[in-house]
Design a protein around this nucleic acid. Structure first.
Length: 306
DNA sequence: GGGGTAATGACAACGGTGCG
DNA sequence: CGCACCGTTGTCATTACCCC
């Protein structure tokens, strides 16, 4: 399952919608949480039509401030649990019939009101019994390493964030690529970068999904980058996992002159990428070994019955 | 209590956004 | 384009806190 979050800062102009569509096509998420849509549910319907993503729940903006949306692709089994101006909470049924809690979160931009959005997160957390993934724009950082340039963040606010994570037993999933997710786009002297968007999960998620991966996806139309979480991000491709499809070298082949030639030819073709070379050997050797040794089990059985 | 530092709140300036 | 609106930033004055 892939879960994407993006603080888009308005989806009223065409360039933004185009970027959203691109985001959906290029990253293929199952769910996407948008914050600061700056529009009503009615207006957002137009965005959904343009993207051809009709499933979802929208929270109206207040004037031109805020506005949330959680959308999911056709075929996903998603049920909304609860929502507010600062979060959308949902239950997602995975293919293996397992249910996980997926919450999109948008921390209050005004530091004076931020604790009220932490309260929302706490309230959701108290009702969570299953594995839990929270993603979005938290408008908060955990330490000084998550901010570059400008003034240092107040320690009290960072501690507040840490306390919520501790109380809810949430862990921060570090991205595999990218770090800062927000940039103020000013000149060099006053350029500020911060890591405001992230995914938090309950500890059990990390245990149940050892291949979990997140990354930052660069955007040009918003000062926030998008982030994406993939529960199976680091898992190898299916053909390398499925025993029926996997390719293993058998030592007895090395005594065969033909095999030696096949390997030599495939390996010495142009290109220096070892992944490619190994793949070429697999493709070349596969049919040969199947022809020569594929029926060996049948032959053994035949000889045994004779 | 004194002296220094850190945090807080109010404020204006600025730039981005949607809309007509 | 201008307008209304919103969020961000740094400044400044005030308050809270800590160590001695």
């Amino acid at each position: 399952m892939k879960f994407m979050c993006w603080n888009c800062r308005g989806l009223g102009n065409l360039a933004k919608i185009r970027e959203l569509k691109q985001l959906l096509v290029a990253n293929n998420p199952d769910l996407i949480f948008l914050s600061e849509t700056k529009m009503s549910a009615n207006e957002f319907q137009r965005v959904q039509n343009k993207c051809r993503w009709q499933n979802g729940l929208t929270v109206n903006s207040e004037g031109r401030s805020g506005g949330l949306a959680l959308m999911w692709r056709d075929g996903m089994n998603v049920s909304i649990q609860n929502y507010s101006k600062h979060h959308i909470d949902s239950m997602v049924k995975l293919d293996n019939n397992k249910t996980i809690r997926v919450t999109g979160f948008y921390g209050h931009a005004n530091p004076n009101h931020r604790s009220s959005s932490w309260d929302i997160l706490r309230r959701v957390g108290e009702s969570v019994r299953e594995e839990w993934v929270v993603g979005g724009d938290f408008n908060a950082i955990l330490n000084d390493a998550e901010k570059e340039g400008g003034r240092k963040r107040v320690r009290g606010q960072m501690n507040e964030f840490k306390d919520v994570m501790d109380d809810m037993a949430l862990v921060d999933i570090k991205p595999d690529s990218g770090w800062f997710t927000w940039v103020n786009n000013r000149d060099k002297g006053s350029l500020i970068k911060e890591r405001l968007d992230r995914f938090l999960t309950s500890v059990s998620v990390v245990e149940s999904f050892p291949f979990i991966a997140t990354k930052v996806v660069r955007q040009t139309q918003s000062d926030h980058d998008a982030i994406i979480l993939d529960l199976w991000g680091r898992k190898l491709k299916a053909y390398l996992i499925d025993n029926r499809l996997s390719f293993k070298f058998d030592v007895c082949w090395s005594g065969d002159e033909k095999a030696k030639n096949i390997v030599g030819r495939a390996w010495n073709m142009e290109g220096t990428d070892y992944g490619d070379k190994i793949e070429r050997v697999r493709v070349a050797l596969g049919p040969w070994q199947d022809k020569k040794y594929g029926k060996i089990k049948n032959e053994i059985r035949k000889l045994e019955t004779d």
